[in-house]
Design a protein around this nucleic acid. Structure first.
Length: 396
DNA sequence: CCAATTTGACCAAG
DNA sequence: CTTGGTCAAATTGG
């Protein structure tokens, strides 16, 4: 809601200041606890102190990471002078999208005349959808209406890749496209790569619809890669909306990067990075998520609809009981167009944060290792396209 | 009849 | 040249 990612420059400075502040406070807290630890306390008290100290250390570290992220952004987006371009793109921004629409239009024309296939520059992210075995034929649907425009066999892949573009591409100049490919390793898994954000106004139908209307076509929530951010206000912990649904938990996993977590950083089983919760709305910029657990449960709306044709999957009805659907996993992997890149050091910890942030950021980062696994539950209210995408024109 | 999908050709990038 | 992505005519389905 409020200006989402708008705060680029001053915002980052402020953010850095706040984070530094928090870091310092956490440090002091840790010292205080440590001091207490020396006293003649009982072992239990001592243990408690140890615990708090660990918590303080984690907090400090988390803040430090967040600061690193902020710095990375700052570094990556130097020309910060223009900060107000993009900004929110919440669903409702539709109206004001007029300006943006124009831009899109221009792109469309350009594309037409040039007929180039280059779509570099467009934000891109990948999601892995795992469908329940009971409905192997289903293709994960993200809530938008797509029109298939091609299919191709990909080298090394057992299954062909399907190419889809937004149904309203022509009508509304929506440039969103996606590629869907079934994993050769696991038939239940689909890799879906999205490119470009939707500029069309599709009305979100609830997943419920999908359930009740099997034949219906898409509609579902989006590939939400977006993130995590914030509006806590609207998040309720217990928010399990869903009447039906399947629930999934979101878990972030940074592939390939070793996050050096402290020993005390949360328990063993936990995942490296922080999970986050997400709102369904386009959040502002980043937030360092640090949820307590690695797996947050999020009501992500995800419905599987039966598109079907291409791979011949058609969603059986959703008779799959919710139970059977549990466990579906979605992995999100954001990838930015080429462009700025952040310095290595921090990249590892930033992994997931960056990814999401980059969605909102103008500049792009070259990072590509984060995956978000999440298990969500079908949510009747589709959150909506969160994409906080880069509204700005990708093409130079 | 309209709209979506199929499918092979075409084209650009690597 | 190979491969991935898109186009567009033909086809299918409602």
């Amino acid at each position: 809601m409020q200006d989402g990612a708008g705060a680029e420059e001053g915002g980052i400075q402020t953010l850095l200041a706040l984070l530094a502040d928090g870091e310092e406070q956490a440090r002091q807290l840790g010292e205080m606890v440590a001091a207490e630890d020396d006293g003649p306390w009982s072992s239990s008290r001592r243990a408690a102190a140890e615990h708090y100290r660990g918590a303080a250390r984690r907090l400090q570290r988390t803040l430090g990471r967040a600061a690193a992220v902020a710095r990375a952004f700052e570094a990556a987006a130097p020309g910060s002078s223009r900060g107000t371009d993009r900004s929110d793109d919440s669903p409702r921004s539709a109206d004001e999208s007029s300006g943006r629409t124009v831009a899109v239009d221009a792109q469309a024309q350009e594309r037409q005349s040039t007929m180039c296939k280059r779509r570099k520059g467009l934000p891109r992210w990948t999601a892995k959808f795992r469908v329940p075995e009971t409905s192997l034929e289903a293709t994960p649907d993200d809530g938008f209406s797509w029109r298939k425009y091609g299919q191709k066999d990909i080298l090394g892949a057992k299954f062909p890749r399907g190419y889809y573009r937004c149904t309203y591409r022509a009508a509304q100049a929506c440039a969103a496209t996606k590629q869907v490919q079934r994993s050769d390793a696991d038939l239940c898994v689909f890799d879906v790569t999205y490119q470009g954000e939707h500029t069309c106004h599709q009305k979100p139908r609830r997943a419920t619809a999908a359930l009740s209307a099997p034949g219906g076509r898409s509609q579902t929530p989006p590939p939400p890669p977006t993130p995590p951010a914030l509006p806590l206000e609207q998040q309720d912990p217990g928010m399990r909306l869903l009447g039906m649904g399947f629930r999934r938990v979101l878990r972030v996993e940074t592939a390939g990067l070793a996050l050096h977590d402290d020993p005390d950083d949360r328990g063993p089983a936990s995942a490296p990075a922080a999970p986050f919760s997400f709102p369904s709305v386009p959040p502002p910029l980043l937030h360092a998520g640090e949820a307590a657990t690695t797996t947050d449960s999020i009501p992500v709306a995800a419905a599987f609809s039966p598109p079907a044709s291409s791979y011949g999957f058609s969603a059986p009805s959703y008779d799959c009981a919710p139970a059977t659907c549990y466990g579906d996993v979605y992995d999100y992997d954001y990838e930015a167009p080429q462009g700025a890149r952040m310095r290595g050091a921090e990249s590892s910890e930033l992994g997931e944060v960056v990814s999401r942030a980059m969605v909102a950021a103008p500049a792009s980062f070259d990072y590509s290792s984060s995956l978000f696994h999440h298990q969500a539950e079908l949510d009747p209210h589709l959150p909506f396209p969160p994409f906080g995408g880069p509204p700005h024109d990708p093409y130079q």
